[in-house]
């Protein structure tokens, strides 16, 4: 066995960890210093998300469900930022809820990052509202199907939901023409499809931004039960560039704020890590076949 193969055979796992750390950290530093990002072109699933929001008439009701926690924030926060950005720019009324206990904090962060910072004219209770979290997973969806206020009796700040001005005309889940769930697992996009979209008889359209782990599992629902889907950080980057490009076209201002390019920036380390993964698989197989050939030679 050659020396190289021997090295591969006995390679300590910590060298692999170090290689992964460098392949991720290197591009982060480069992009962090230069601000350069890689170009993105949108796939049909990401385009469908954009179109679903864009096609709604202004001041439509959009229900956001933040079904994730900070553990998946690296993938999903950029999606949340861009989705709220497009809805705010389009002038939709945004209703935020969470079925994960840590979701309300992420909603607050997104509201501060996008709405408070760039759309200060939007008023809480009139243009957007955060209802916070409710325990019960699918049972919350079940209650929402017939009585939204019963499912979420108060806003996060402690005001009665029924008294929120933008709740006028809202009684049940089907009063929201578009549902956007940002999903990291259970309960999440799959449950929204199963319990709300499928039983609404087409009244509720749903798009989702989901983690990489969930993306393959949700593909069978697209484009039937799911109108659009942002899969993993790549989906977020595609959608982000689509929203930025179109908003720049509308406003005539080509300068994009860095906070709206988070996913695109993250595609740099993604490239480095994916190339490393491919290299590791190839090297692992080289070592495997070399050893197998040597074993066959020895037995012959």
């Amino acid at each position: 066995m050659s020396g190289f193969i021997k090295v591969l055979e006995g390679l300590d796992r910590r060298w692999i960890y170090l290689a992964m750390a460098i392949s991720v950290a290197g591009p982060i530093i480069y992009i962090g210093l230069t601000g350069r990002t890689l170009p993105e072109s949108a796939t049909p699933a990401a385009e469908a998300v954009y179109n679903a929001i864009e096609e709604l008439p202004a001041r439509s009701r959009v229900l956001f469900s933040f079904d994730f926690d900070p553990g998946s924030g690296g993938e999903l926060i950029p999606m949340a930022t861009s989705l709220v950005h497009q809805c705010a720019a389009r002038g939709h009324k945004m209703y935020f809820i969470a079925l994960w206990p840590l979701g309300p904090q992420l909603i607050e962060d997104t509201i501060k990052r996008v709405i408070t910072a760039d759309y200060p004219h939007l008023k809480e209770g009139v243009d957007f509202v955060n209802f916070g979290y409710q325990a019960g997973n699918e049972a919350v969806m079940k209650v929402m199907l017939t009585d939204f206020v019963k499912a979420f009796p108060k806003t996060k700040t402690g005001d009665a939901s029924a008294q929120v001005p933008m709740m006028e005309g809202v009684t049940r889940a089907s009063d929201f023409p578009l549902l956007i769930t940002i999903s990291a697992g259970y309960p999440g996009a799959k449950e929204w499809v199963q319990y709300v979209v499928s039983s609404s008889g087409g009244k509720v359209k749903m798009v989702t931004g989901c983690t990489g782990v969930q993306t393959p599992q949700l593909y069978p629902y697209f484009p039937g039960q799911l109108a659009g889907m942002l899969g993993a950080i790549k989906g977020a980057a595609e959608y982000e560039s689509l929203v930025n490009a179109n908003l720049a076209k509308t406003s005539g201002d080509a300068k994009v704020q860095p906070k709206y390019q988070e996913a695109q920036r993250r595609m740099g380390p993604q490239l480095g890590a994916h190339l490393l993964m491919v290299a590791l698989i190839v090297l692992g197989n080289i070592a495997y076949f070399a050893k197998r050939r040597e074993g066959a030679r020895a037995s012959a």
């Binding site: 782990v213 993250r266 890590a273």
Partner: peptide
Amino acid sequence: GAAFGFTVMGRVALLAARVEFLFD
């Protein structure tokens, strides 16, 4: 295989976010 590819993608994004936190 597709699930593996997407899982890698997801985990790397989470790692990138933590490294960004430390550096930034």
